[in-house]
């Protein structure tokens, strides 16, 4: 981001200290720092993950946008890039990983599988999109999305981050941790603990 964009308009900065002093809001500087250093979780589920690797490699060079430091541990990452088909067997692990990520955290659904089940939607072991369980910030269409599409999606996430405000964000609110999600159970089929009352009263 340019210095001009950080400065809040309407405040005169004397010419001799221009470029050394900025007058801005806390939100702006905070979001600027965060959006330029998003650390994704090193996490690839399926075919889409290969395009993610390509986006990281020299040709597309994701690091131009400040998001190249992938972390193998969820405790150190800000972004979960769900790149591939979400299966029921994998679902408890994904939710656990999500719960282990510290706030602020974001989720991108990369590809049609993560967004809604994709070509495998009708499969008996496939979850119809990751958003059934965890909140998604950006969806990237494609099967697989090209590296360009992926980078576009990541830039969209940066835009989203830069519009947030400390006053309203989830992780500074009082009360219990809103982002924690009950871990699904592997039963005769996948069980979402939030749906237990519904399942209990169903008639087969």
């Amino acid at each position: 981001m340019d210095v001009k964009d950080i400065n809040t308009p309407g405040y005169e900065i004397p010419e001799e200290i221009e470029g050394q002093v900025a007058i801005t809001t806390l939100d702006k500087i905070y979001n600027w720092g965060r959006s330029a250093s998003v650390w994704p979780l090193m996490f690839a589920l399926a075919c889409c993950g290969i395009e993610y690797i390509c986006a990281q490699a020299s040709r597309f060079d994701l690091s131009r946008f400040g998001m190249e430091v992938t972390r193998p541990s969820p405790r150190q990452s800000d972004l979960m890039l769900v790149s591939g088909t979400v299966t029921k067997k994998m679902m408890p692990t994904i939710v656990r990983l999500y719960n282990q990520m510290p706030e602020p955290k974001y989720v991108i659904a990369m590809g049609s599988c993560a967004s809604g089940g994709g070509p495998f939607k009708e499969g008996y072991n496939v979850v119809s999109g990751i958003d059934r369980y965890i909140p998604v910030d950006v969806y990237i269409p494609g099967c697989p999305p090209t590296p360009q599409a992926l980078i576009n999606g990541l830039i969209k996430l940066q835009e989203k981050i830069s519009k947030q405000s400390i006053k309203t964000v989830r992780w500074y609110q009082k009360g219990e941790d809103q982002a924690s999600i009950p871990v699904p159970i592997l039963g005769p089929d996948l069980i979402d603990p939030r749906k237990i009352p519904l399942i209990k009263n169903h008639e087969a």
């Binding site: 119809s128 059934r132 005769p188 089929d189 996948l190 749906k195 237990i196 209990k200 087969a204």
Partner: peptide, 11 residues
Amino acid sequence: DNIAYPAGFDP
């Protein structure tokens, strides 16, 4: 959702 349970299943 993409789920089905046997009859009388109590989660």
